[in-house]
């Protein structure tokens, strides 16, 4: 198909939209990575950077919202263009939430650094890595309108869920055995939950990308499985 619009200004706006979404995605991926490093390596400086960086993510979301309204008003996009623009609008809302979870992990890392007594953390970085890759691939799928890649993201969510269940059991065991660890474990439990939610959100993004790319919704089976999440 012809890639270019007859009106090239429309292409410029679509490209700018893709650029903003990609930048936002890159920032939250980095935020998650740094928040986890802050947690594992107990580096408060990194945590501060994640918290401050979230402001830019919020600003990017507002910028995308404005651009989408402008494109709809001035260009009246149709078909795959319309689906992509709507998907971008929804996706940035989700990315903003992912950024919030990363920020929350960073905040918790500050609270528990200094009085670390347990080492259940080994599972958390692995879990976060998968969730981060899901976010990365979902946004890659958006940038390249790749429905196959989007589907693959969704299939990986079960891995994140399994990690969460495993970490949950481990932390409960710690708390039962040693009540002194309860405060720390509670924080870590929230961190695990945050990562689990990031996986769910990456799945949502992938679903939107799938629709934008194909015009079809994913089979009901997958959506039902997600609802159980």
């Amino acid at each position: 198909m012809a890639e270019q619009h007859t009106v090239s200004a429309f292409d410029d706006e679509i490209n700018r939209l893709r650029g903003l979404v990609a930048e936002m995605g890159g920032r939250v991926e980095l935020a998650l990575d740094e928040a986890m490093q802050a947690l594992v390596k107990q580096e408060p400086g990194l945590a501060e950077r994640v918290i401050e960086g979230d402001l830019r993510v919020d600003a990017l979301e507002a910028e995308v919202e404005k651009l989408v309204v402008q494109i709809i008003a001035l260009r009246a996009p149709m078909a795959n263009d319309l689906r992509e623009v709507i998907a971008a609008l929804k996706i940035v809302g989700v990315i903003e939430r992912i950024g919030d979870y990363a920020k929350n992990i960073a905040k918790r890392s500050r609270q528990i650094s200094g009085h670390r007594t347990i080492e259940p953390i080994s599972l958390l970085p692995s879990m976060a890595q998968i969730a981060g890759e899901m976010v990365h691939d979902a946004l890659d799928a958006f940038a390249t309108r790749n429905a196959v890649l989007a589907s693959a993201v969704i299939e990986r969510d079960v891995l994140v869920d399994n990690f969460y269940n495993s970490i949950f059991r481990t932390l409960v065991t710690y708390m039962v055995e040693n009540p002194k660890t309860i405060s720390e474990c509670a924080h870590l439990l929230f961190v695990a939950k945050n990562i689990e939610r990031i996986g769910d959100h990456a799945t949502n993004v992938a679903e939107m990308v799938y629709y934008a790319a194909t015009g079809e919704y994913l089979p009901e089976r997958d959506r039902a499985a997600l609802a159980e999440g």
């Binding site: 198909m1 270019q4 619009h5 149709m78 078909a79 689906r83």
Partner: peptide, 19 residues
């Protein structure tokens, strides 16, 4: 037709990519 056309030619026309 306007959200998910089947044919490439339809899509190119309604999205303004018609040469």
């Amino acid at each position: 037709i306007f959200t998910n056309p089947r044919e490439e030619r339809t899509k190119d026309y309604i999205t303004g990519r018609y040469g």
